[in-house]
């Protein structure tokens, strides 16, 4: 272990304890760590976007296409480079919000573009990526040599249909509709319970990870570091 790592471990341990101090009650130490987290994570995403979006997708892409036009006379390179002016212009239009409502309304154009793009993908992407695969995965054989598979497939089919029907609110849930939606709520409750249990266990494993860090990386690691120095 080197000195930067040891310093890092001590900072991480201090911040970990600061966050855990909230278990006692809201206190200045926790607030310090919480506010630090907001600042650090915001800056992290700025650097991330600057590198992977602005540099890789915009600046480098423009430079690559422009050089292919200049060096090889590629017409497509010329167009590929200059078409990037469109998202750049839209990006700058987004920033007009800085200058108040007089010009700020121009930011509606990039917003409209993004919303339109999202809506278009909301149709094609949802159908191709979610709806059809989910429906396809539900249409399963109800007769196989394995009894457990038959039971599972029937339950899966009944669970999907009844859960969907539970969310059908255009008619009152009475009679057959009421009965099926009752089955639906049973499945939904088991599902929520299972999802809850799964979430609890994932959070507990994170907790164990942090406690492990405090005991082994921080305490044992520090002792080992000074042992090697001595």
């Amino acid at each position: 272990m080197n000195l930067p790592t040891l310093l890092g471990i001590w900072i991480a341990a201090t911040l970990t304890i600061a966050i855990f101090s909230f278990l006692y009650r809201d206190n200045p130490l926790y607030k310090f760590a919480e506010h630090l987290y907001v600042g650090v994570s915001a800056a992290y995403w700025v650097i991330f976007a600057a590198k992977f979006t602005m540099q890789d997708m915009l600046v480098d892409e423009f430079a690559r296409n422009w050089s292919s036009y200049v060096n090889q006379g590629s017409r497509s390179g010329f167009w590929e480079a200059w078409i990037l002016v469109i998202p750049t212009a839209l990006g700058f239009l987004m920033l007009t919000r800085w200058f108040g409502p007089k010009v700020g309304w121009l930011s509606r154009w990039p917003i409209a573009f993004t919303i339109g793009l999202g809506a278009g993908l909301g149709i094609t992407g949802s159908i191709q990526g979610i709806l059809l695969p989910q429906v396809q995965a539900t249409i399963l054989p109800l007769w196989t040599p394995n009894l457990w598979v038959i039971v599972a497939n029937i339950l899966l089919f009944v669970g999907v249909i009844s859960s969907i029907i539970y969310f059908y609110f255009s008619r009152p849930h009475k009679g057959l509709l009421g009965g099926v939606s009752r089955v639906g709520i049973t499945f939904i409750m088991v599902s929520f319970g299972a999802a809850f249990g799964y979430t609890v266990m994932s959070r507990v494993s994170l907790l164990i990870g942090r406690l492990y860090f405090l005991v082994y990386d921080w305490i044992v690691g520090t002792v080992d570091f000074f042992k090697t120095l001595l």
Partner: peptide
């Protein structure tokens, strides 16, 4: 893999249908 997936899939299909309807309304 069975009851949890069944209910989650039902909800997901409902959400997707809602997304498609909302997308058409926006467009």
């Amino acid at each position: 893999s069975v009851p949890q997936t069944a209910a989650r899939r039902g909800i997901l299909i409902g959400v997707t249908l809602g997304t498609i309807a909302m997308s058409i309304r926006i467009i």
